Amino acid sequence: MHLIKTAEGQQAFKERHADLGQRLRSAFLLFDGNRSLLQVLEATSAMGISKDDILALVSRGWLAEKTGAAVPAAAPVSELQPPALAPAEVDEKSIAGRYQKAYPMAVSITGGLGLKGFRLNLAVEAAMGYEQLVELAPRIRSAAGDKAYAPLHKALFEAEKTQ
Rank of each mutant, 00 (worst) to 15 (best):
M1K: 11
M1G: 10
R16D: 15
G21C: 14
Q22A: 14
Q22K: 12
R23N: 10
S26H: 13
L29E: 14
D32A: 06
G33C: 09
L38H: 10
L41D: 04
E42H: 13
A46Y: 12
M47V: 02
D52I: 08
D52M: 11
L55A: 11
V58T: 07
S59W: 11
R60W: 00
R60G: 01
R60A: 09
W62V: 01
L63C: 06
L63E: 04
E65D: 15
T67V: 13
G68P: 05
A70N: 11
V71S: 08
P72D: 09
A73V: 14
V77D: 08
V77Y: 03
E79V: 11
P82F: 00
P82I: 00
P83M: 07
L85K: 13
A86T: 12
A86Q: 10
A86H: 09
A88R: 12
E89N: 10
V90N: 03
D91A: 01
E92K: 07
E92V: 03
K93S: 10
S94T: 11
A96K: 10
A102N: 00
V107F: 08
I109T: 01
T110Q: 07
G112C: 02
L113F: 03
F118Q: 12
L120K: 02
V124D: 04
V124H: 02
E125T: 09
A127C: 06
Y130E: 05
V134Y: 06
L136E: 08
R139M: 08
I140C: 02
I140T: 05
I140V: 12
R141Y: 07
A144V: 14
Y149E: 07
A150I: 00
A150Q: 12
H153C: 02
A155I: 02
L156Y: 03
L156Q: 05
Q163N: 12
